[in-house]
Amino acid sequence: MLDDRARMEAAKKEKVEQILAEFQLQEEDLKKVMRRMQKEMDRGLRLETHEEASVKMLPTYVRSTPEGSEVGDFLSLDLGGTNFRVMLVKVGEGEEGQWSVKTKHQMYSIPEDAMTGTAEMLFDYISECISDFLDKHQMKHKKLPLGFTFSFPVRHEDIDKGILLNWTKGFKASGAEGNNVVGLLRDAIKRRGDFEMDVVAMVNDTVATMISCYYEDHQCEVGMIVGTGCNACYMEEMQNVELVEGDEGRMCVNTEWGAFGDSGELDEFLLEYDRLVDESSANPGQQLYEKLIGGKYMGELVRLVLLRLVDENLLFHGEASEQLRTRGAFETRFVSQVESDTGDRKQIYNILSTLGLRPSTTDCDIVRRACESVSTRAAHMCSAGLAGVINRMRESRSEDVMRITVGVDGSVYKLHPSFKERFHASVRRLTPSCEITFIESEEGSGRGAALVSAVACKKACMLGQ
């Protein structure tokens, strides 16, 4: 009897593995994704193909990295998701002549009506938060230079001027797309009239992360975010950046690689679950690469896999709870928690219980395998993109072996128990001629924006502006 049951459990697990095998990517698959990513990057950089390229390769006008001589107080704003952060950054000489960066910050959550109302409502709310922060720190009387981390696709015309191309991540505030974001912020500050600010720089969160990590390690020339969304930036040779005049030196390019796949480059790798996630998203047909990796989508992918296993009578005796059938019910943090389970399955059992399920031991094991399959594919897909960037940098610099540091931020990278190990191992397999160091950014977005502002202020002083 026991043997029969054991055989049935083994057969069930084997069927589960057959279904989950769809998520496995072979090294040849990853090399294919990497080569296609490089081709799209090239198209994004070139003037004649930029418009139709899915990977936009947006110039950021960040050319210099901090040298350690900029000092002063800077205000930093960070808008990239449902939370908005205001930070005071003091850049100065530390002990023994070292450079020191001290920060104080406060988080504000953005109400739904500000995210989806008008641009005026959104930026009025942001300036209200700045006003509140300055009151708390008794700094209303000071006109501070301000660095703005704005983590949406922007076409820069200068370091302090950028046109919002399109909202992502659930934002829909009308009247912002096609307009200068810094102008919208300046107008809102003017409307309030109770404080003055000098907006000197606007950067993407990947750029802010790279600059913040450069402060720790001067070989950091790539910034990457794996959180709600997924994106990367890197220092490109100016001669390859056709959208900006000049051939000397390097400029940081914001790849906006989340949109890779929007022209069909990933079609052969998309599964039924991916198509369902895409169809029910706020932007169907867009940001397809990001939807395979980002935390906004990972939990939902797992939920759809679990429903398939229920329908195949391989999980929960073929019956799903009402909660499990509800879109968004299986949160991405559950994926991390399930994979963090120590082996007694308590954590998995508790999560499934909150979803109205009474799982068996085998159910718990199957749910864990589903989570591992989805998150491992995410790590491997992400590795193909980064390997594409790094191999490109090595080739354009004609280096036999390139040493490089990548600064990384984002909740999936930082909080998932195995993502970074799987990701690092896969990147290294795909970049055999590179020695890569990964560092995690601390308060990256805010500190990085302030350091970019410090560079901009120093330049302005040198130019006598």
Rank of each mutant, 00 (worst) to 15 (best):
G81F: 04
S373L: 12
T326C: 10
N83A: 09
N240R: 07
D217Q: 01
I159P: 10
C382T: 10
D113V: 09
H50E: 11
L122T: 03
S411N: 15
T376V: 09
G294W: 03
K102D: 09
E112Q: 09
A320E: 07
D78K: 15
L288M: 15
G147C: 04
I189R: 03
Q106K: 12
Q98H: 03
Q239L: 08
V71L: 07
T376H: 11
R429L: 14
D341M: 08
R428M: 09
A232P: 03
G68C: 07
E95D: 13
L451M: 10
G356P: 00
T168I: 12
T49W: 02
P359W: 05
I351N: 04
L315M: 11
Y61E: 08
R250T: 06
E27G: 06
L324G: 00
G264F: 03
K291T: 01
E372V: 04
L79W: 15
A201L: 08
E245M: 14
T206G: 05
Q323H: 07
K143P: 05
C129N: 03
I439K: 11
I19C: 14
L77P: 03
V401A: 14
T228Y: 11
Y125H: 08
S353W: 05
F84C: 12
G407F: 03
A188T: 07
G446I: 13
I351D: 00
E14A: 05
K420N: 10
Q26E: 14
M8C: 09
G170R: 07
E272G: 07
T431Y: 00
I159T: 15
F195V: 08
L30I: 15
K296C: 14
N254T: 05
A370G: 04
P284A: 09
R397G: 04
G295H: 14
I351V: 08
K12S: 14
L304Q: 14
G175C: 05
E17K: 04
A21C: 14
D73F: 02
K102L: 06
A201V: 11
G343T: 07
E290F: 05
Q287D: 05
G388E: 03
E221H: 11
T431K: 00
Q38E: 03
E40A: 08
Y289I: 02
L315A: 09
I439Q: 09
L146C: 12
L386Y: 04
T103Q: 05
H156M: 12
G175I: 14
F334M: 05
V33W: 03
E395C: 10
K12Y: 15
L20D: 01
D29W: 02
H50I: 12
R428Q: 10
S263M: 15
F438H: 00
K143N: 09
S426L: 11
V310S: 07
G328P: 03
E52I: 07
L386W: 02
G246L: 08
L415P: 03
M57C: 06
L430I: 08
Q287K: 11
V241F: 04
N240P: 02
Y108K: 06
H137Q: 10
P59R: 02
L307N: 10
V374T: 04
S281C: 08
T437G: 07
L45E: 02
S109I: 05
D247E: 11
E40P: 00
K104R: 08
V226C: 06
S212G: 10
G170E: 14
F84A: 12
C129K: 11
T82K: 07
D194R: 02
F23L: 09
D42T: 07
S321L: 14
L352A: 05
L45I: 04
S151I: 10
S375N: 13
G410L: 11
H317P: 07
K172H: 06
K458A: 08
I439D: 05
L77V: 12
L134C: 11
V374N: 01
A450M: 10
L415A: 12
I404Y: 04
E443C: 02
H218C: 10
R192G: 04
E331Q: 12
V244Y: 07
D274T: 03
K143A: 03
D274C: 00
R250L: 12
R422H: 05
E157A: 10
H50K: 06
D262V: 12
N254K: 11
S396G: 07
L276D: 08
M87N: 14
I348L: 09
E221G: 09
L144M: 12
G117M: 06
T354N: 13
G410T: 04
G94F: 12
R377F: 00
G68M: 05
I189S: 11
F84T: 08
A384R: 00
S360E: 13
R186K: 11
H105V: 07
Y297L: 07
M41S: 01
A329K: 05
L315W: 02
T82R: 13
I293E: 00
E17P: 02
V207A: 05
F150M: 13
S131W: 06
S151M: 05
L2Y: 13
G178A: 15
G162R: 10
A208D: 14
V374I: 13
Y215A: 05
E319H: 15
M462D: 15
F23K: 01
K346R: 06
M41W: 00
G264V: 01
G72D: 12
Q287M: 14
E48D: 12
G92F: 14
G94E: 09
V199K: 07
G264S: 07
I126G: 01
L352E: 00
S174H: 10
V222N: 00
F419W: 13
R191L: 05
S69F: 08
L2W: 05
Y273I: 03
T342V: 11
E236P: 01
L25Y: 08
A329D: 13
E157V: 12
E96I: 05
Y61G: 11
E236K: 03
E177Y: 03
M238I: 15
D247G: 06
L146D: 02
M87S: 05
R447E: 13
D341Q: 01
S340M: 11
R327N: 13
I436K: 02
D194L: 15
S375P: 01
Q323E: 08
A460W: 09
L184A: 12
I189P: 02
E372T: 07
A53Q: 01
E272Y: 07
K13C: 11
M139L: 15
V154E: 15
L307D: 08
E339Q: 03
I110C: 14
S373C: 12
G246C: 06
A454S: 14
K31L: 07
C129T: 06
L134V: 10
G94P: 05
H137L: 09
S398N: 11
Q138T: 05
V253W: 02
R429W: 06
I225R: 04
S281H: 01
G328Y: 09
I126V: 06
I404P: 02
S76K: 06
E256W: 05
